[in-house]
Design a protein around this nucleic acid. Structure first.
Lengths: 211, 211, 211, 211
DNA sequence: AATGAATGAGCTTTCATTCAT
DNA sequence: CATGAATGAAAGCTCATTCAT
């Protein structure tokens, strides 16, 4: 699955197609080698392309990495904001929403495992304030959405009113991302996905306590 | 708090003391600039030391980063393995253990904030299989310890027997690390720490469900 | 004033017209940015023309610079050779000739200030023996013409017979070019031009000595 | 003759000696190849030195060129400001001063012909405002000194009071530099120098007019 | 004829590492 | 042991030139 497909980009001049190819190749190379070890040459030869060509489409190495991250960020954002946090009227509804999000996030990462490697690992090694902030933003966004779910649950009366919503949301986010990482690198992702979904959802809803 | 102090290293020839100073300086520099932006020169001048001297104590740049990470890993390991997972006889005991771990982990990261920056962020940007695995190991170790707590809880009968212990443990780990990151970078760490402890513990034990 | 106008080029196929446009644009760009900083792309976009087109009219970058210089050289040559050094029968005639040359040279440089910037400054930065020699030639040509004036003056008896004509001619050339540079870059060229003409002519004819 | 000798630099740590060697080599290379064609590698191999070493002593290519120019500028400045324009009481004194300046300027350029090539030719091809201004400054300085001579001559009564001193000074400067260029590149410099001195001085003092 | 996408030689610059002092 | 001058591999980036369309 390519960036352009996911974005539903229908217009595809030769130039934009080329651009997307390079973006795709860069994602692959960055995820395999990491930002610093990746050479522009590597990206270019991935496409049997002269490395000078790269610079017709992107300013420089940091520029393309930013854009790769931007693509990923916008995919995740779309995926997260797509579900209405206020819809869930019961705990059961909520559980279904959680499952849906898990499926989607995992679907995204599985469609192109490079995405998870870049967003969860490689992106942290770059000393660029803007980039760091952009990545923080997406994690924060997810956090804020989880907050909305919790607030909705509290308002509807099926969640405890004394929750620290922000912290609880971030904690759930942490657990969620751990699940994503593990499932993506699993040897039996389908099986693991279902176990993880059950685990996360149960943990969130009931905790570990008996009864 | 220095590495050597934490490790309780009593023997301190001139050479080992120097080594520890360099390790300390390297931790600082790596955490401030990141692995790639950090120059050997930076580490050396932190100690008003010729940068050639560096190579009398460490093989090369990757070597010292590995050792910095190793120090951190062993601190965390010690801290985690220090508590006996089988001691907690009741849910209340367990809650106390969780609090203790939270305090300790946070104490470690707060004593030297560079530690958290390196272990949570900088360490990911390096393309070195051995290093990656070493870091994964420490997260896995923590996961395994949390597993032991869960198994103990199940055996003692105060936790649900149908938990996927491994996955639940990793999920808890994910939430825990998120908490650590947030508290460390908080503007009011003490206040936040107590909120986070309550949040995490409540989430783990009861989940979000009302009642 | 364009190159073609000055050369009085009447035949103008589409191709030669295009060629002249490019030459014109190149003069502008070279004078603004200097040879090395000027990109073929810059010249092309000056004409809203694809930069590939450039190579239909000129061999390469050095080629067009040479031709730009050639145009300038031939303008100056024409201007200088246009006056007959043997016409001046008296010192007064000579003074009038000098004035005329000053007016013309300055007129040329003022009609297109790029010309002076290229010939006096940019042309020196290029490492191309042929080009250097071509430029030297035009300065030498002017020198030789000034020689002819001097020889004529000596023959007619109104100049000192013991002049080192070659060196005196070159010295006068040096003073003349300095005047050109200063007038061209002056904030009040008309005023400066008349002062400079008087200065140069007086210096040449009488020197600085009183009486 | 080296930069350091001329500057009378007595202190010569290993570092400053190295620096001067590089400056010297750079002067040679820049004068032979021109700024743009000169590679850092060329300067380095001139000294059988790794090209990385260059960067221990100079920021970058433009930096060293600036410093080469700065050395030249300060030599010329020293040489020019060394003679007191108010000393000449008679035209004969003035003539002797002119001769002295000619000898010195020529002596400088002859001691290291690269100097004249850099200051008269190569320095013009660089697109760097600061550099251009610095070079203009030295030419202007010489102009201002010549002005002082003229003003002194007028005050003493041996020069015409109606001279445009500034313009006359610059014109003389133009002639003077032309002489320098020619003598430096002459095949018989000694002979040419004496002819040129006589020519310039005669031209300045008497002009070309008979009687 | 006109175009501009593609190319890669060629440059500058950095910095981990070495080693003579 | 300590030093820091020297090194050169290695990478990013530019832009004149080519050539398929």
């Amino acid at each position: 699955m390519s960036f352009s497909m996911i974005r539903g980009n229908m217009e595809s001049t030769l130039a934009t197609r080329r651009r997307n190819e390079i973006l795709e190749a860069a994602l692959k190379v960055f995820s395999e080698k990491g930002y610093h070890a990746a050479k522009i040459e590597d990206i270019a030869s991935e496409l049997n392309m002269g490395h000078g060509t790269f610079y017709r489409y992107f300013e420089n190495k940091l520029d393309i990495f930013n854009q790769v991250v931007e693509e990923i960020v916008s995919m995740i954002t779309q995926l997260v904001t797509d579900i209405n946090p206020h819809e869930a009227e019961t705990l059961e509804d909520y559980r279904r929403q959680l499952e849906m999000i898990g499926d989607r996030l995992f679907g995204l990462f599985k469609s192109n495992p490079s995405i998870s490697r870049v967003i969860f690992y490689e992106a942290f090694g770059i000393e660029d304030r803007g980039l760091r902030e952009r990545i923080q933003e997406v994690f924060d966004l997810i956090g804020r959405y989880i907050e909305l779910y919790l607030e909705n649950g509290i308002a509807r009366g099926y969640m405890r009113a004394d929750l620290h919503v922000r912290e609880t949301a971030l904690a759930i986010g942490g657990a969620l991302f751990e699940a994503c990482k593990r499932v993506v690198s699993s040897s039996d992702p389908e099986q693991d996905l279902s176990v993880w979904k059950e685990t996360i959802i149960t943990l969130i809803i009931q905790g570990v306590k008996k009864g």
